[in-house]
């Protein structure tokens, strides 16, 4: 592998994976704590109709209309879920199931009926993304990597994602207190005069933003994995929210790098030349990390809990 290959093929893919994982993973902490983990699932499924609608209205596959379409669809979906849950007095899981499957179906019908499927939009791509197509063209080696000319050709997804990730990180730092108290105790937050409903709406919008930004590179399923697995892993390891946020970022980065490396270079270990789906592999690595945490976490892991239970039994007077 040459430096040029690494810089133009692997590095951008790894960075995109890491940034997607980080932005979704950070927000996932609040989704998991708010018992809204599956909102991420619903939102990433409804991005499909949004993208198709964006394409149909704008007539191009330029990023901006597609992202806007997906954002609008996500916000509509979140609103519909809330309306159906309240007005229909349905459990939120059922309300979510109704909304996201219906919108997904609309997306598929639109796709097939309008011929959008011929214009580089296809549902399978939307489901599992195409990380490998993120290329940094115009870079030939380490020497010219930092020149203005090379940097100006950085892949567009990478720049979008970097911006979104930075925005999310800034938002969480700036509104850390407000997010924390409204997640823990909405009643107290309201009595402190915080706009609790606005905070949850903004959170959903930002979740949609992160999902959409990550979406075209890594696909909806990896987005869901990143909303949940890093946060869930960190949740097993600590009892402090700030530490949990840092740990989730760490898990997201490890999963992003590890998953990509395994997918791209893993097959060579058993003599295969083809690479595997990086997005899928990243989800698998995140799942393995979470499994490890669930089993072996120092305090809340299954092993240590079993050991504690055992010693407590031994402590009891016979």
């Amino acid at each position: 592998m040459t430096a040029a290959d690494f810089l133009s093929i692997d590095l951008p893919a790894i960075l995109v994976a890491v940034l997607s994982a980080t932005s979704c993973g950070l927000l996932g902490n609040f989704l998991v704590l708010r018992r809204q983990a599956l909102i991420g699932d619903a939102i990433s499924h409804v991005a499909l109709p949004g993208i198709v609608a964006g394409f149909l209205i704008a007539g191009t596959i330029a990023t901006l209309p597609l992202m806007l379409g997906a954002m609008v669809a996500a916000v509509i979906a979140a609103g519909l879920i809330e309306i159906i849950r309240r007005a229909g007095r349905l459990e939120s899981g059922a309300a979510m199931g109704v909304v996201f499957t219906t919108m997904f179906a609309i997306g598929i019908v639109l796709l097939e009926q309008t011929g959008a499927s011929n214009a580089h939009i296809d549902a399978e791509h939307a489901l599992y993304g195409n990380l490998e197509s993120t290329l940094w063209l115009g870079v030939t080696g380490w020497d010219d990597a930092l020149t203005w000319e090379a940097l100006s050709q950085l892949p567009r997804q990478l720049i979008t994602l970097a911006g979104v990730t930075a925005a999310i990180a800034i938002m969480i730092v700036a509104f850390y207190k407000e997010l924390k108290v409204s997640t823990f105790d909405a009643g107290l937050a309201a009595s402190l005069g915080l706009p609790v409903r606005t905070i949850s709406t903004v959170l959903i919008v930002v979740v949609a933003l992160a999902a959409v930004a990550a979406f075209e590179a890594v696909g909806s399923i990896l987005v869901i994995a990143m909303f949940i697995c890093p946060a869930a892993t960190a949740r097993m390891l600590t009892d402090s929210l700030s530490r949990q946020l840092w740990l989730s970022v760490l898990v997201a980065v490890i999963a992003g790098v590890g998953g990509y490396v395994l997918a791209a270079f893993g097959p060579q270990f058993w003599g295969d030349t083809d690479s595997l789906s990086a997005a899928g592999m990243i989800a698998v690595v995140a799942g393995l990390l979470q499994t490890a945490a669930m089993i072996a976490a120092p305090r809340y892991g299954i092993l240590s809990r079993a050991i504690r239970r055992r010693t407590r039994q031994l402590d009891l007077p016979a």
């Binding site: 704590l33 207190k177 924390k180 108290v181 823990f184 105790d185 915080l194 929210l241």
Partner: peptide
């Protein structure tokens, strides 16, 4: 919730 007793009391100061 991942918060200590001190964190929760500090929420009263928000």
């Amino acid at each position: 919730f991942p918060a200590s007793a001190e964190d929760v009391v500090a929420m009263g100061l928000y």
